[in-house]
Amino acid sequence: MTESGFVNRDLFERYLKGHFTNHMGLVKGTDKPKTLILYDGHKSHVSLTLI
């Protein structure tokens, strides 16, 4: 959580790389399930790292 209570780019990247990938089984060396991720275009959801 950020001090402001809002999601920022760093927090969103940490969520996707950590929590989301762990729970979706997107760990290196495992079979990857078909997953559709929908973005809403919010500035905190857009970064070169995530692309």
Rank of each mutant, 00 (worst) to 15 (best):
M1A: 07
M1W: 06
M1C: 05
T2Q: 06
T2H: 03
E3R: 12
S4Q: 09
S4G: 05
S4I: 00
G5Y: 06
G5N: 08
F6N: 12
F6M: 11
F6K: 14
V7G: 00
N8P: 00
N8F: 00
N8L: 02
R9M: 06
R9V: 07
R9F: 03
R9D: 04
D10V: 12
L11T: 15
L11R: 09
L11G: 06
F12K: 01
F12E: 00
F12T: 01
F12Y: 11
E13V: 14
E13F: 08
R14A: 15
R14I: 09
Y15P: 01
L16S: 00
K17S: 14
K17P: 02
K17E: 13
K17N: 13
G18Q: 03
G18P: 01
G18K: 03
H19W: 14
H19N: 12
H19D: 13
H19R: 11
F20K: 01
T21K: 11
T21E: 09
T21P: 01
N22E: 13
N22W: 04
N22L: 12
H23T: 05
H23I: 07
H23C: 11
H23S: 08
M24V: 08
M24Y: 05
G25E: 03
G25S: 06
L26T: 02
L26I: 03
L26W: 07
L26Q: 03
V27F: 06
V27I: 14
V27D: 10
G29N: 12
G29S: 10
G29E: 09
T30D: 12
T30N: 14
T30I: 05
D31Y: 12
D31G: 11
D31N: 13
D31A: 14
K32F: 08
K32L: 13
P33L: 04
K34Y: 08
T35V: 15
T35L: 14
T35W: 06
T35K: 09
L36A: 12
L36I: 15
L36C: 11
L36H: 08
I37S: 06
I37K: 07
I37W: 09
I37Y: 13
I37H: 06
L38Q: 09
L38T: 06
L38M: 15
L38A: 10
L38G: 01
Y39S: 15
D40L: 00
D40W: 02
G41S: 05
G41V: 03
G41P: 00
G41H: 02
H42C: 14
K43P: 08
K43Q: 13
K43F: 05
S44Y: 09
S44M: 03
H45Y: 08
V46P: 00
V46E: 00
V46C: 04
S47I: 01
S47V: 00
L48V: 04
T49G: 09
L50V: 08
L50R: 08
L50W: 08
L50Y: 03
L50P: 00
